[in-house]
Each structure stands twice: as C-alpha cells, then as structure tokens.
C-alpha cells in the first residue's frame, strides 16, 4: 500500500488532538505541588530496615538525610517552629537504634532543630541529647553538655539544667573529662542564686584537684569564685582572692 500524505492525515490529526489535550492537562497540573504535612509518622525499626532491604547503615543515612532536608524540598522553606517536635523525637530515637555510634543525628538535633525559636519545643531535643550524652563513647558527653546549655540558656529552666549538670559532672568524674564539665553544677547553682553551694563546690574542686588542673583552669576557677560568686566585700575578706591578685 502506498503511503500518501492523505493517508497520514488521520493519524496526524489524532496526534495533534492528543497533544492539545496533553497541553490542556499540563496547565491543570502545573501549580499542583506536594503538600507539607509536617514530620511523617515514625516507622518501627523493622519497617525502617525494609526501606533499605536490611542494610542498617543505609537506613540510618537515608533517614538522616531525610530529616536534614524535611520541609525544605521542592522550593519550600518551612519555619523550624512549625515542625512537630514530638514526632521528630520519635525519629531521633529510631535513628539512635539504627546507629548509636554516629554523631550525625545528635548534631542535627542539637544545632539544627535546637535552633527553634519556640523554647517549649525543646523538651524532646534535650531529652534525646541527654540520653545520647550519657552513653560511653568518643566525645558523647558533649551532647549532654549541649542539653545543659539548651536548658539553661534557651529554656531558662535552671532546675532541669542543674539536674542534667549533676549527671554531666558525675560522668566527667568517672571518665576524666575537662574540669569545666565537673564545674557545671556550680555555675548553675550560682545562676540560681545559691552562691554558698556554688562556692563550696568550686572550693572543694580546688582543694582536691588543683594539682591535676591546668594553671589556666585554676585561674579561671579562682576568678569565677572571686568575681562572679562573691561580691567585692566578700572577695576582699577571702584570702584566696587576695592571693589571686
């Protein structure tokens, strides 16, 4: 059969009609975007492993990257205080189960989600960081210190900060951590107004550990007692403060 332009007329017409309809539906769908429904529900650990066909580390990294970018995909930028932090807490704990050694999710929780302007949302973050920070492991205690920081300076909940600082100080004593970690309860007691307890704590530390402390740490501790805990008249009567001068 010879193919003529007349015999192609019908197929081309149908093609053109289909193209017109396709373009029509393109206009219908052009501005349809995925809706931000907030943080999705947390799967179980078995469910999470199914996504990566059994590879724990792949599941951890994939979900971690998802948490980092959630709310900021497809041209969208969601405000941190619009996130569901209770649901986020579930994700943090899931990730912790998949890989308790990595610092990626603690860093995300502390420095990204911890930056929310709504301090009432910080409870799950602080709880998670405190849990991770009590674990044995390289530098894990810094997350506990960050939990103290968030409680003290962002939530301004000094009771919670003091409770966490005692845990940090005990861990610092067991694991020979920097002295400022051991001194944390004193700083918070001082902030709470319990100057006597703060002073006693720091003086005990100086009496028992001064020879093990770096000279700068000793000087800092003495200065803190003399300028931040004691007022001028009290400092004048304290021999330690005279010696420091």
């Amino acid at each position: 059969m010879q193919i003529t332009s007349r015999s192609l007329l019908m197929p081309y017409s149908i093609l053109l009609t289909a193209l017109v309809f396709t373009i029509f539906f393109w206009f219908q769908a052009r501005h349809v975007q995925a809706e931000w429904i907030n943080v999705p529900p947390v799967p179980s650990e078995s469910g999470a492993l199914s996504f990566s066909i059994g590879d724990k580390q792949m599941a951890y990294r994939s979900f971690g990257l998802m948490l980092q970018n959630i709310g900021n995909i497809g041209g969208r930028s969601a405000a941190l205080d619009s996130y569901n932090f209770d649901m986020l807490s579930g994700w943090f704990l899931l990730e912790d189960g998949l890989d308790p050694e990595s610092d990626y999710v603690p860093m995300l929780a502390a420095y990204y989600f911890g930056g929310t302007p709504d301090e009432t949302q910080l409870d799950p973050v602080i709880e998670y960081l405190a849990k991770v920070g009590q674990r044995k492991g390289k530098e894990k205690w810094r997350w506990l210190a960050h939990a103290v920081y968030l409680s003290r300076f962002k939530q301004k909940d000094l009771d919670k900060a003091l409770e966490l600082s005692y845990i940090l100080a005990a861990k610092a004593e067991r694991e020979n951590l920097p002295h400022w970690a051991k001194q944390m309860p004193a700083f918070i007691l001082s902030q709470q107004g319990d100057k006597q307890a703060a002073k006693d704590l720091l003086l005990t530390m100086l009496k028992e550990n001064a020879e093990k402390m770096h000279p700068n740490e000793v000087n800092f501790t003495v200065d803190y007692i003399c300028t931040r805990i004691l007022d001028k008249s009290e400092a004048a009567e304290m021999p330690l403060c005279d010696a420091a001068k």
């Binding site: 990294r61 971690g64 990257l65 990595s102 610092d103 990626y104 860093m107 420095y111």
Partner: peptide
C-alpha cells in the same frame, strides 16, 4: 549535602 560525616554518607 550532609551537615557532618559527609565522607561516611
């Protein structure tokens, strides 16, 4: 694109 541990990712 990860904020830390990029190599591990």
């Amino acid at each position: 694109s990860a904020i830390n541990e990029s190599d591990q990712f």
